[in-house]
Design a protein around this nucleic acid. Structure first.
Lengths: 137, 137
DNA sequence: GACATCTTGGGTTTTTCACTCATAAAGTGA
DNA sequence: TCACTTTATGAGTGAAAAACCCAAGATGTC
């Protein structure tokens, strides 16, 4: 399963936000970037996309930062993929030539089962459960 | 499901070869390329890979060409992927940061289910069943 | 108003994709 | 043996995408 760095970053950042969900404090980009080893400048773009999609909310200025817009159990992995790498969910098969149709049909089935799979995973499944070493700022 | 052109070409070419399996004649590259709308020069490379992997056999010179090495029912979609785009089957997750581990675990599960899925599809499933318009040379 | 933080848009570097082309190797038929 | 046909192989190329970096602006808090 070839997943892009961008998608992995998004999953990790969301999981990290999930860990502090309910503590009603916002997390800074730099904090997220440090904890998950993500280039800060790149993470900003990803968080921006997630915010525009309504998965994350943010505030500017001093004591600004990011937080989940919903509970980790209410956000599916599929929603994250949809924001960051929508092509992974759509089945883009050309379907040209004599066997194009049948080949495309098979891939459509495979894609459908993949979609169902990522839809059943929730953000909570991406979060570590036990005691986690975290550095709050 | 974002599949590369190369993989789709491979599926279509293999399916096309499957259609003439058992007729003990070899198919030319140009014939395959025409029937499946694939750039001939590119198709040569793909067929070469498939041959090195033992999925296809070939002969040069006049009356040369390509044919399946096994029956369409005995070749799984997974084998084709393994040759043309192996990254799709391996789960390349970095797994860095605080949530890297858990995120990687989830993707491993998803990848495993994907592998099983493509393993259950056979080349025969990619071939059109009814009467097909084909131009034999 | 000073400062910290998010926001936005553009730019850059590296890699991958999807080919093309030239040349070599090998088989066929005369 | 020679001409011809077909596959074999490796190098090269143009465009696009991936993975970033940076700067200037907007918006908060103190």
């Amino acid at each position: 399963m070839k997943l892009s760095l961008k998608l992995e970053y998004a999953c990790r950042a969301m999981a990290q936000l999930g860990l502090v969900y309910g503590q009603c404090g916002l997390v800074h980009v730099d904090s997220l970037a440090d904890n998950e080893r993500i280039p800060p400048n790149y993470l900003v773009q990803i968080l921006n996309d997630l915010r525009n999609a309504g998965l994350v909310r943010s505030r500017r200025g001093k004591s600004g930062g990011y937080a989940l817009a919903r509970a980790p159990e209410a956000i599916s992995l599929r929603e994250i993929i949809e924001v960051v790498e929508p092509d992974l969910l759509e089945d883009r098969v050309v379907g040209d030539g004599v066997c194009g149709e049948t080949v495309a049909n098979v891939w459509r089935e495979i894609a459908a089962s993949f979609c169902m799979s990522v839809d059943s995973y929730k953000l909570a499944d991406l979060m570590p459960t036990g005691r986690v070493e975290m550095y709050y700022i």
